[in-house]
Computed example of a mutant assay.
Amino acid sequence: MSGDELNLRVDALTTQSGRFKSLIGEFFRLEFKRARPKWGPYEVCIEIAHARDTSSQDVDRVAKAVLDALTGVVFHDDSQVERLLVTKVEGDGPRIAVTARPMKPVRILEDA
């Protein structure tokens, strides 16, 4: 955790949200006893790494599993996620890297 930003790396790859939820939930119970989910809009970036020789996972299924795991830990409901970026890359082995942070207000400049 860095301020309101969560950076998490899991050296495994699964689409089973129950496994992610219990793993992430247990991590937060042990390491961040005071962490509570927050309200407001969030952005989440997920990088899915897989080895060249392994079958690759569907990005939408992995993203859903990750969002389900973060619900109740980082934010109250995954409907709070207003920006989601999921990238699949080739790596040395299975890994999921997640960054979740409150969205900053975007200021749109009007034409002069």
Results as ranks from 00 to 15, higher is better:
Q57R: 08
L67C: 05
S2F: 03
A112W: 13
R9F: 04
L23S: 13
K88T: 10
R107Q: 13
K38T: 14
R107A: 09
D68W: 03
A12C: 08
Q57N: 03
S22F: 03
M1D: 09
A49E: 15
D78G: 00
P41D: 15
K21R: 15
H50C: 05
K38A: 15
D60T: 11
H50Y: 13
R9Y: 01
H50I: 09
D92W: 00
L84P: 05
R52N: 04
V89C: 09
L30Q: 15
L23W: 04
S56V: 09
A63K: 03
G3P: 00
G25S: 07
R107P: 00
R29C: 05
F32P: 00
V74F: 08
Q16R: 14
D53W: 13
I46A: 04
T99L: 13
F32N: 10
W39A: 13
T14G: 01
L6P: 01
G3D: 07
A69S: 15
T71H: 04
A35S: 14
R36C: 08
K88C: 08
K38C: 03
S2H: 10
K64V: 01
A97P: 00
L109N: 10
E110Q: 13
W39N: 11
F27Q: 04
T99G: 01
E47L: 09
F32R: 12
E47Y: 07
D53N: 13
D11V: 07
E47T: 15
G72F: 05
E47N: 10
R101E: 15
L8T: 02
G3W: 02
L109S: 08
V66D: 01
C45Y: 08
R95M: 10
L13P: 02
L30F: 06
A51S: 14
P41N: 12
R83C: 10
I96D: 00
K104I: 11
P94C: 12
M1G: 12
Q57I: 07
T14Y: 01
A69G: 07
M103Q: 15
V106A: 13
V106T: 11
R9I: 14
D111K: 09
Q80L: 09
K104C: 03
V74S: 01
E43L: 14
A100C: 11
I96W: 09
E47P: 00
M1I: 06
S2Q: 10
I46L: 05
V59R: 14
S55E: 14
E47V: 14
P41L: 09
D4Q: 11
A63D: 04
D77F: 05
P102F: 03
A97G: 05
D78C: 07
D60E: 14
L8S: 04
I46K: 02
L109C: 05
E110W: 08
H50S: 13
D77P: 00
T15M: 08
F28I: 01
Y42G: 00
Y42F: 15
R83A: 15
V59W: 02
G25W: 09
I108M: 08
G93E: 11
A100Y: 05
L85F: 10
D92G: 06
E43P: 00
L13M: 06
G18C: 03
T71G: 08
G3M: 02
D60C: 01
D68F: 06
F32S: 10
T54N: 11
A63P: 03
H76T: 06
V86E: 02
L30K: 13
M103T: 07
S17Y: 14
V44I: 09
I46N: 03
P105I: 10
G91N: 04
A112Y: 15
D58Q: 06
R107E: 14
L70T: 01
V98A: 05
R19W: 15
L85D: 10
E5R: 12
